[in-house]
Amino acid sequence: MSVENLKAYIESGVLELYVLGDLSPEETLQVEEMASRHVEVRDEIAAIEQAMEQYALQNAIQPPADLEIKLFEKLGISEDDELETVSETQFEEEGPRIVRLDGSDGRVRTLRYALVACVALLVVSTVALFITYNKLNDAHDQIASLNLDKQKFAGVVKQLEFDNNGLNNMVAMNDSKEWATIRMAGQAFSPKSKMNVYWNKKDKSVLINYVAMDLPKADDTHEYQLWALVNGKPVSLGVFGKTDSTSNDALKKMQAIQEAQAFAVTLEPMGGSINPTMEKLTVMGGV
């Protein structure tokens, strides 16, 4: 190409458009071919490029500072140690590197979401656990109070069964003709007391019924003793305690006596006495 033609080519303005990126691919190739052949074209392009670069640098506008952080986060480049892992993985794989970067970015984001989800889950679980713990405590309290109620009712039922048993026996004995009921009334020691004794006319056995007695409660060192008066002499028929709840049986069999004119009960030291303590005569009744 002649010098004139070259000059005209340069002055056509195509090189400026080339630098501005405003040419079609074919035109671009042509310019590049010209540049590779003619040093004048190369120099002109370089001068235009430097002018545009100067122009841009002198009219630079500082972007907001956080944009840089956002950009490197987007590219998955933030810390120096992270940088090394990124470059390492790139050496392993030469192919579509950007996919890898995006992938690691996605992974970091996923992990971040996972972390947030875990923390949220932990908080929810803790709250749920706390609520459950409180409910469990309430339930324990309820169970304890229900147990208490149950024991109380069981006690009541036992008492009722015991009473019922005794009453049934009383009714049975009253109905039968074999049994004589001796009512003993309160004496000076305990005027309000009363008690029944059942004496079998046939085999002479003696029964008392815990339900059919109303005696003051004996203390730990005393118990009641049943006596029969035979021709003016007291004969011990045995001792009996307070209504003890270990047995459901309201009836207690005492010693049999062939004949008696009266029955009496005294309060004696534990184990009973040979002779009745008359000051503590509680109830007495004649046959």
Binding site: E11, S12, G13, E16, L17, L20, A51, M52, Q54
Partner: peptide, 11 residues
């Protein structure tokens, strides 16, 4: 094209 070139020469 020429005007772009002249403008850039000016720059």
């Amino acid at each position: 094209k020429t005007r772009i070139r002249l403008a850039i020469i000016e720059l």
